[in-house]
Amino acid sequence: MNREVFVDHIGYALGEVTRTVEETGSRGDLLSQPDVLREAGFCVHHVSGPRQTAYDFARQAVQTVERELGNVGAIIYSTCIPANANIGRADAYLESRDVKNLMDFPASHLQSDFGLDRAIVIGLSQQACTGLLGSLRLAQALLRSEPETERVLCLTSDRFPEGALYEQSYNLISDGAAACVVSLAPASFRLLAAHGITNGALAQASDDETAGSFFAYTHRVIQETLAKAGLQISDVAWFVAQNMNRKATDILARLLKFDPGRAVSPTLPEVAHVISGDNLINLKYLAERGQIQGGERVLLCMAGYGLNWQCVILEKT
């Protein structure tokens, strides 16, 4: 019989510069008009300060849960942008022609910085915005397959490069990181099922193609995850969405025949789409306010480039 796996201790960090959609629009960093993004539910977002790196966010996020790390046996470090999985200087490689500058892995630094000496490190860099949910799935598999591993630190961290647009697939982006601990020890949320779909033929999908495929594939990944857990959508109390256009969440709820009032993305206006971290940031928001009752099931879902769709179902203990 599979051992039960639990998720808890969610922490996150955001870029230190907060801007309204109008401010970002006036900087030329959006594709859509600011009022369109505001209509979609976005108000502000958070971008890196000039010296903030993706690794800085990772450290900050993990620091918020540092006391809960315990005996971590693995770190699964996901990045949406593959370049964020290397903290080496590109110019150092160009000067030296030594490829080790391309392999300065942030997960290794994290292990060292937090003294997680027993932890192995795993990089997860090709699941885009779905990476954090993907890391929960990997953590579950690891905990079940390797008895000596009791706790896994999952995190995601990204910052957009200088000059990047801060709108992707009609979403306003924030730089930041999110982390959580997945363990065998009973904790806040029991991990009931984790599942994903990849359609590699859409690896270079346009924004319209990404949006176009969103509903059918998201619906499918949710249905398949429910089936994996032996549940119906009526067994789910909360659908914690990614921070995307509020209308898309409403449409998805209707497709699922799910109460739109319980299809939520409460941090959408103030946090925006923190790349791969939204689901857990939203879950933390709900949990801290006591909105999720014991025994209630929570479905988290994310879509990302690749194209990838991932879904996780948790149960509040």
Binding site: V36, Y170, D207, I251
Partner: peptide, 12 residues
Amino acid sequence: ELLHSALGAFAG
């Protein structure tokens, strides 16, 4: 209608 209005604002 939600989809139509959302696409109207965003899509290509």
